[in-house]
Amino acid sequence: MDEKGWEHFYHQADIGVRGVGPNLSDAFEQTALALMAVICNPENIALTQQVNIERTCDDTELLLADWLNALIYEMATRNMLFGKFQVHIEDGKLTAKAWGEKANPEKHETAVEVKGATYTELKVQQNKDETWIAQCVVDV
């Protein structure tokens, strides 16, 4: 895997976010970057403020949706955008740090707000090459 482990995938009205990584936690980090790239260019976000996030769910796919929804919630209530993530997942418990700054439409060229992560195309799985994929469609 090269420097970017995320991409967007086709959905007619909304947008699909997909992260790939050598392990589950990395894949979740990359999916979060894909989420941010729906809103703005994550590379333009200064990493000046840290937010801690914890979520627990036995179902790994629902945990992915919970993780993305937690970020959407933090962005909405703190008026922030994130550019970097560190995720640790163990026994259905996600512990994460997200770094970013206050949203500034002019600086960040924000395109669209994400309303929530849906269960459409929601998949978390390990590939034959042992990399992990984590993806879903987000509602914009």
């Binding site: 995938f9 086709y10 959905h11 195309e121 998949k123 799985q125 590939n127 994929i133 993806q135």
Partner: peptide, 9 residues
């Protein structure tokens, strides 16, 4: 990647 997860085109 789409092929890997059977995601829609």
């Amino acid at each position: 990647q789409a092929k890997l997860v059977g995601a829609p085109l």
